[in-house]
């Protein structure tokens, strides 16, 4: 996408330069050719292909069906609280634990104003809106610590509203959850 954009930008600017420096080369191009060629034939196939691909990709990212692991993220000014509906005994914490290599559905809610849940290295973001419950499906391919932030402006503590995501290998994760269960 980036390369394509660069090529198209370069093309437009090259035509513009040519209009000044080598006008005779473009003099034969008619009005209709400029408008139909540049305005319609050039962008339409590119945009259709791009949008189509993005929509198909978007479909695959949707949290459809059930996954084995679920978590709840509740935002408030200015902290995140994570819990696990399948392990009700686990104390609410400010660190999210997930298994590596497995998709996890995270249900995001808010106790006060709008926040947004974002772990840049794990993928997209989703808003935490009071009165709504949004689900995002994330997957950490490698165990490790990932940094998360609030991406929607939520008042004077906005930049302090960070959290940690710890991805464990599946066995460690299972034993953590089991050990915590009553």
């Amino acid at each position: 996408m980036l390369a394509g954009a660069a090529v198209l930008t370069a093309l437009v600017l090259a035509l513009l330069t040519m209009a000044y420096l080598r006008p005779h080369r473009l003099a034969g191009v008619t009005a209709g050719q400029w408008i139909v060629g540049g305005g319609l034939i050039l962008p339409i196939p590119i945009l259709m292909l791009l949008t189509g691909t993005a929509l198909v990709l978007g479909e695959q990212l949707l949290p459809r069906g059930e996954v084995a692991y679920r978590a709840e993220a509740r935002a408030e000014q200015w902290a995140w609280r994570f819990s696990y509906p399948d392990v009700p005994g686990l104390p609410v914490s400010e660190t999210l634990h997930i298994p590596a290599g497995e998709p996890v559905d995270i249900a995001v809610t808010s106790a006060d104003v709008i926040h947004a849940f974002w772990v840049p290295r794990l993928g997209g973001k989703i808003d935490a809106i009071p009165g709504h419950r949004n689900v995002i499906r994330l997957q950490a391919d490698e165990p490790g610590i990932y940094r998360g932030i609030c991406a929607e402006f939520c008042g004077p503590g906005h930049e302090t509203m960070q959290f940690r995501v710890e991805a464990h290998d599946l066995e460690t994760f299972k034993s953590m959850m089991a050990g915590a269960a009553p």
């Binding site: 035509l15 000044y20 473009l26 400029w34 540049g38 319609l40």
Partner: peptide, 19 residues
């Protein structure tokens, strides 16, 4: 697309004129 139509109308205007 309508934006591209305008961009190319402008470039075409320059290219077919005496800029």
């Amino acid at each position: 697309i309508p934006t591209a139509v305008q961009i190319f109308a402008w470039i075409g205007t320059l290219a077919s004129g005496r800029p």
